[in-house]
């Protein structure tokens, strides 16, 4: 009731968070036999940390102004677990686009499905991470904004809204930019865990999340032509993945030398071998 009153006063904001499930950043990643994908067996999956920041921002806006937060994600049923985690943090409902036709999509294919889901939900603000920690393409938010014809505020490290506009701060070299856009709008989040400090879900939130609505959608439900998504429609192809080179072993300065000797040897090694001084 209060939420409705706030809404009438132009304060409450309905927010959709576009959430990607990514491998846990702690996981050991192995490249698959084809050389351009990763082995997904036995991986632990998490909410893309940048999207987790978006969930946190959405919940703070909801706490401040009223409104609702819906989580929109895509992928197989394992993604339900990540949506439930966001619901346990405090989001109100979830939508999972689970359609085999999405498999192998590039960012544009996924963005088409997400934009269609957003259109159906009709939120005031769309939030998502500026990038995902898996392929780091950084295209999702911008593409969804473009497909919707909405403004896109990129790389926010502070976000607020008065119900008619959304404002962000974006760090730039040596300073910051404050920018705003009329709603509806898309904002993507930068920053770090230290900037946003996303909340942990505890038992009452986790249990509440079990009973919150989570809708499964196919592309057809969203009015998206499956031939516009998937590997066949992908305009970007990953051609190769490569692991970072193994780090060379460190070198320890001879411990038998006295302090001055160690310092001399260190300076010599840095100058002659590492060539950094």
């Amino acid at each position: 009731m209060l939420e409705d009153l706030l809404k009438k006063g132009g304060l409450a904001v309905n927010i959709a968070v576009l959430l990607k499930q990514t491998p846990d950043t702690e996981s050991v990643i192995r490249i698959a036999g084809d050389g351009k994908s990763i082995v997904t067996d036995d991986l632990k999956w998490i909410i893309n940390p940048y999207d987790e920041f978006a969930v946190e921002v959405a919940l703070r806006l909801k706490e401040k102004h009223g409104g609702s937060v819906v989580i929109v994600s895509w992928g197989p049923q394992r993604v339900v677990e990540s949506i439930r985690t966001a619901l346990a943090m405090g989001a109100d409902s979830g939508v999972l686009i689970d359609d085999e036709a999405l498999e192998g999509s590039d960012s544009l294919g996924v963005a088409k499905a997400l934009a269609a889901a957003v259109q159906e939900l009709n939120p005031d603000i769309v939030l998502c991470g500026s990038r995902a920690v898996d392929y780091d393409e950084g295209q999702r938010g911008a593409m969804v904004a473009e497909l919707l014809g909405w403004p896109h505020l990129a790389l926010g490290v502070a976000v607020d809204s008065d119900g008619s506009k959304v404002q962000i701060d974006r760090p730039i070299e040596g300073g910051k930019v404050a920018a705003e856009a009329d709603l509806p709008a898309v904002a993507t989040l930068g920053g770090s865990h230290a900037v946003w400090n996303p909340r942990y879900a505890s038992l009452p939130g986790i249990m509440k999340a079990k009973k919150k609505p989570l809708a499964n959608k196919k592309l057809a439900d969203l009015g998206v032509d499956p031939s516009e998504c998937g590997a066949g429609a992908a305009k970007i192809r990953v051609t190769a993945l490569e692991m970072p080179p193994e780090r060379a072993a460190g070198r320890i300065i001879n411990g038998d030398l006295d302090t001055a000797g160690k310092a001399r040897e260190l300076v010599r090694a840095l100058h002659e071998e590492a060539k950094v001084i």
Partner: peptide, 21 residues
């Protein structure tokens, strides 16, 4: 238990305690 996180619950191997609410 009220402040238990998902990790805590996994460690307890406690099935979702609907009965606790």
């Amino acid at each position: 238990l009220w402040s238990a996180t998902e990790q805590d619950l996994a460690q307890l191997s406690l099935a979702d305690p609907y009965w606790g609410f």
